[in-house]
């Protein structure tokens, strides 16, 4: 399979095993700038591993991942960390906000990790929080806000560095459908307007419906449905 021209992030023939468990067995992936791609499949199929590999969190056993023409698997740990700080954003299902920091400090964290001053980082963070309609929570700690609000804070955090790709792993998994869809709406709106690509791992069809296309992972192999049908 050849990646379509202009792809931002392309993965070919990814293989990854955790001990005796094969998580990925020849998975393929590609995404364009500003595109929202849903990664679907039953639990245990290797969705999350695919996302972790794409994001440079996990190194695949074999296969290649190209981001913007650069081979991610060849990068050092420090380089991949820097890439994640500058070009990627992340939203997880839960347990991602630092409980001791206030919401605005949480959102500002990626900027501060990249070296911005506290003041500047929090100003930018607040703008994103306004955009995600959670600016009134700035002084609250994650423990004091609802699940939906917390996820919106997390989305704000994932977008605060103007990343080129946001990786979202079951971002609505812990939310009811109303809050979940609101989060998806805000995430995809914000991402589209910033031309940010979103890799969305989900098992919920109604969440996947916010994507532009989906790929299905089954038994560690991916299927790009656009090309099948």
């Amino acid at each position: 399979m050849t990646a379509p021209a202009g792809s931002l992030l392309v993965a070919r023939d990814l293989r990854k095993a955790y001990g005796p468990t094969t998580a990925l067995d020849g998975a393929e992936f590609s995404i364009h700038p500003g595109e929202v791609v849903a990664v679907m499949g039953p639990s245990g199929s290797g969705k999350s591993t695919l996302l972790h590999c794409l994001a440079g969190i996990v190194t695949p056993d074999s296969g290649s991942i190209t981001y913007d023409g650069r081979e991610v698997t060849a990068m050092s740990d420090a380089e991949r960390s820097a890439l994640r700080r500058s070009a990627f954003g992340f939203v997880f299902q839960f347990g991602q906000l630092v409980p001791e920091l206030t919401c605005v400090e949480n959102v500002a964290l990626p900027l501060r990790l990249s070296g911005s001053s506290r003041k500047e980082a929090e100003r930018t963070a607040l703008a994103w929080m306004e955009r995600l309609e959670v600016d009134d929570l700035r002084k609250k700690r994650p423990g004091e806000v609802s699940g939906g609000q917390g996820q919106r804070v997390a989305v704000a955090r994932s977008l605060v560095t103007n990343p080129r790709v946001v990786f979202a792993d079951e971002p609505t998994g812990a939310l009811d459908s109303f809050n979940g869809e609101r989060v998806m709406e805000l995430l995809t709106d914000a991402a589209r307007s910033a031309n940010t690509a979103v890799v969305l791992v989900t098992h919920e069809a109604r969440v996947a419906a916010y994507s532009d296309r989906e790929i299905v992972v089954r038994d560690g192999r991916s299927r790009d449905m656009e090309r099948v049908v």
Partner: peptide, 11 residues
């Protein structure tokens, strides 16, 4: 979990 997610976004 928190540590892993902090690492994910490049800490």
């Amino acid at each position: 979990k928190l540590l892993s997610s902090l690492v994910a976004f490049g800490t």
